[in-house]
Structures are given as C-alpha cells and as structure tokens.
Amino acid sequence: MTRAALINGRTIAAEMHTRIKAEADALTAKGWAPRLVSVSVGDTAAADIYVRNQKRNAEAAGVAFEERRFDEKISLEQLTGVLAGLNADPRVNGIIIQRPLPAHIPVKALQKAVHPLKDVEGMHPSSIGNIVYNDLALGPCTAVAAVEILKTLPLKLEGLDVTVIGHSEIVGKPIAFLLMGLGATVTVCHHMTRSVAMHSRAADAVFVAVGKPGLVTGDMLKPGAALIDIGINRVETLDGPRTVGDADMESCAEVAGWLTPVPGGVGPVTVAVLMQNAVAATRMQMEHYANAYMAEGA
C-alpha cells in the first residue's frame, strides 16, 4: 500500500521567503525598511525558541527584528501605553505579542491595542472580521499558512469537500472562512459535534487544530484525502519528550494521500506568513502615509 506523501513545509516556506525578501528589498530602497518589534512579558523561556525562530526568519527575509522584554509585574495599562507608542512610531511596521502572558494580562486586550495596520499576527478583531469579506490584507498567520499548504496540492479547491476539526477564533474559524472564499464546501467540527469521524471520512481534505495528540486516526479519513495537522503537543515517549500533532501519523499515513508532518509542516509556513504580513503591513503604511501627507495638487 502506498503511504501518504509528506508535505514539506520548509520547502514551501523557503519559496515564500525568496519572494518576501525581494519585496522587502524593494520597500527598503524606497526608505521603508520593514521592521518588527517583539513584545514579551515575564518569564520568556517558553517563548524564547519562537522568538529566536522569528528573528532568524526575519533576518533571512530582509525584515529587521527587535526584541522588547518587560517585567512580569508590568500593568495592563502600562503595557497598553507601550503598544500605543509602538503604534505611533513610523519606524515600527509590525508588532508581535509573544505568548504566554502573565495571568493579569489578557491577550485579547493587547491584540485589540495593536493598530490594525501593524497587526502582523492577524489577531486584531478587525483582521479576523475582514476574512468574512474575503479581505486577506493581514490574515491570522496559522490559518493562512494551513490554507496556503492546501493550495500547493493538485486539488481543485472549487467544490472541494473540507472538514475543519476545531473552531477557535484564530485558527479553525478563519480557516473555514478562507476556504469558503476559495469555493470549498466546509464542515466545522467541535466538542459538541456528534460524530467527527462521520464528517472527516466524507472530506477530500481535513484540517485539525485542537491540541489533542492522536485525535485523528486513519479510520477517520477518506482514502487519498489531504490531512493538514496544525496541532503542536509535547508528549513523553520511551525515547524522551517529542513534539507531535493532533493526528496519529502511523495510521493516517496508511490512508491519506498527503499529510503535514509535525514538526516541519504548518510551523515553517506560519513563520513565512508572519514575514509576508510584515512586508504587506509596511507597504500599507507607506501608502497610508503617502495618501495622508501628499501635498494638494501633487
């Protein structure tokens, strides 16, 4: 039996980076060098690996990257003030809020405090809402990355039957709207869905983003279907801790036509989309300033 083809997210990301760097270099030549600021609060050990990865990818894409770390005792009001300063600084084109945050700092409050034109993570309510209108100016990175991966496969998206398992505001729901915008027929499953397997077995493509290792097994898939695994879980094995997704790779590989490995699938493409958003945000700000300050009659 033929096993599923593994989708190499690193290859897709590398191709995106080539295009992104060309756009970043063009903006830099016009005096608008893209620049990201990363905001971390408190104990940053859990986020450090992501920050390092973002910085490395930013530099490769021609995007400047600056880290700003704040004491865990900083108040929400103080941090909101910091974001207001970054919003007003024309040298800053994108703001990244690193997670986790201390308990007294609600992440949604910070996401709302980032100016929509600098929302490179695509987490601001206006960025999420724009997807309903098929406006992808700055879409949520993970959701956009997952859909971009599907678009690389030899599948016609118009009329494609897709099941999305997980309906979070920043992954599952945006994926569903993005796919509908491309003409797919989408079913969204969640914790109250009576039979997830019934829906997933009827789908040509399955997206899973729940945070439960081994949730999707081979008997839940249609033979030849595409499986995009967005889950990231740390599990203990006899060989030590491992990072796995939400799918049981062994059984799914026997049934699926294509699947994303974890790690190395959606993750690298998500970081590439973040850089893509950084360049797009910079271009949008350049155009905004040009329109706002253009001399009359020019």
Rank of each mutant, 00 (worst) to 15 (best):
I105E: 09
G94K: 04
P106D: 05
L83S: 04
E66L: 13
N87A: 07
R56E: 15
H104F: 03
H104P: 05
G122V: 01
F70H: 09
I128Y: 01
V120R: 00
V107R: 06
F65K: 07
D89S: 06
A137L: 14
Q98W: 14
G129C: 04
V107I: 11
V107A: 14
E77Q: 13
R99N: 15
F70Q: 02
S75V: 05
K112S: 09
A61W: 06
A103G: 06
S75Y: 01
A84D: 13
G122L: 02
V107T: 10
R91Y: 08
R69A: 14
P140C: 07
H104L: 01
G62K: 00
H115N: 14
Q98K: 08
L83A: 04
A88C: 02
A113M: 05
L79C: 03
I74L: 13
D119Q: 04
L138F: 04
I96G: 05
P90C: 07
N93D: 15
G122I: 00
D119I: 00
M123I: 06
E77L: 12
R56M: 11
A61R: 06
G139H: 10
Q78A: 10
K108P: 10
V63S: 02
P90W: 08
P102H: 02
L138P: 01
L110S: 09
H124N: 12
G94M: 06
R56C: 10
I128N: 01
H124F: 07
E77D: 15
G81S: 05
L138T: 00
R56P: 11
S126Y: 10
I105C: 09
R56W: 10
I105T: 09
L86N: 01
P125Y: 01
A137H: 14
R91M: 10
V92W: 10
L76N: 01
I128R: 01
V107F: 05
K112L: 10
N130F: 11
V132H: 15
P106G: 10
E121V: 04
V107G: 07
A84E: 13
Q98A: 14
S126F: 12
E72L: 10
A137E: 13
F65V: 07
I95D: 03
I96T: 04
G81M: 00
L79E: 01
R99G: 15
D119E: 03
K73D: 15
Q98T: 06
T80R: 12
Q111Y: 10
I74Y: 07
P125D: 06
V92N: 13
R69M: 10
Y133F: 15
G129N: 00
N134Y: 08
A60H: 08
E77W: 07
D71P: 11
F70D: 03
L76T: 02
D135N: 13
E67R: 14
A61C: 15
V114I: 09
V82E: 04
V107C: 09
A137Q: 13
L86D: 00
P100Y: 03
L79V: 00
V114D: 05
E66A: 14
K55T: 14
F70R: 00
S75G: 08
